[in-house]
Design a binder for these strands. Structure first.
Length: 222
DNA sequence: AACATGCTCAACCGCCACAAG
DNA sequence: GCTTGTGGCGGTTGAGCATGT
């Protein structure tokens, strides 16, 4: 695990950056810190301005409408920057934080999401067993989405309740599932356990029903 | 009151795309 | 076509605050 010291911006540094940009504008992030007398990288300056100092940045107090937009766009695969573009005043970083701290649970609180999780997993099975699937990024997405499941399973519980396994993280008792050679039986084992945590009101479908039918939305692409 | 745990968010990193030379 | 510089994106981390025990 990398260990690096975080170095918060001081009010003086903020002032320097704001003064410089208000006077000369943004012309080159790499050169700017030198001219502004800041001992920061251009990237750091850019991030500080974009996420914090820019007067157009809105802070806190997300409306329900904003949350819904984030959830919808995220579910359709939009990137953070695309979502930020749809929410004036919100930054990608802020939206990302919002997602990971609040919305990921809300998002999972519907059946469609659960089905999507299963579909993603099914695609993964198909890939591993039958195809040399070229879209490596899809696998990463599958892993991420499956990780999402653990958050989903928390729906309706408080932080003090028993937390189901956290798939795909260092604390994940199932982490070996993703790192070992793929074995279909492992999927069933995990799905079974996964299903036991789902709120019964959702009427979790039998995983066998889902895996019994060949399913791969990417067949047409192959 | 003291400690443990969880949550939030600013800040960093690595990687990628693109443009210019 | 290759190299280099720059900006942008997404993932991750750590500090500090809030809350619970």
């Amino acid at each position: 695990m990398p260990s690096f010291k975080k170095c918060p911006w001081t009010p003086e540094e903020d002032m320097q950056l704001v003064n410089y940009i208000s006077r000369y504008g943004i012309w080159n992030w790499t050169q700017m810190p030198k001219h502004a007398g800041l001992s920061r990288t251009g990237k750091s300056c850019r991030l500080r301005w974009m996420n914090y100092l820019d007067p157009q940045v809105k802070r806190g107090n997300y409306t329900q409408e904003e949350d819904e937009i984030i959830i919808k766009m995220r579910q359709t695969g939009s990137g953070w920057s695309a979502i930020a573009a749809s929410l004036p005043g919100r930054t990608d970083n802020e939206i990302k934080n919002r997602w990971h701290t609040r919305l990921i649970i809300k998002s999972a609180n519907n059946m469609e999401q659960i089905v999507s999780e299963i579909d993603t997993l099914t695609m993964y099975c198909d890939y591993q067993n039958n195809f040399d699937f070229p879209e490596a990024s899809m696998l990463e997405a599958a892993n991420e989405d499956y990780s999402l499941s653990s958050h989903m399973l928390n729906t309706g519980t408080s932080s003090n309740d028993v937390i189901p396994p956290t798939f795909g993280t260092s604390a994940d008792p199932h982490v070996s599932f993703w790192r070992e050679p793929f074995v279909l039986e492992n999927v069933y084992d995990d799905i079974d356990e996964y299903a036991t945590y789902v709120d019964p009101q959702f009427g979790m479908p039998n995983p066998e029903d889902w895996f019994g039918e060949p399913f791969n939305p990417y067949y047409d692409m192959l």
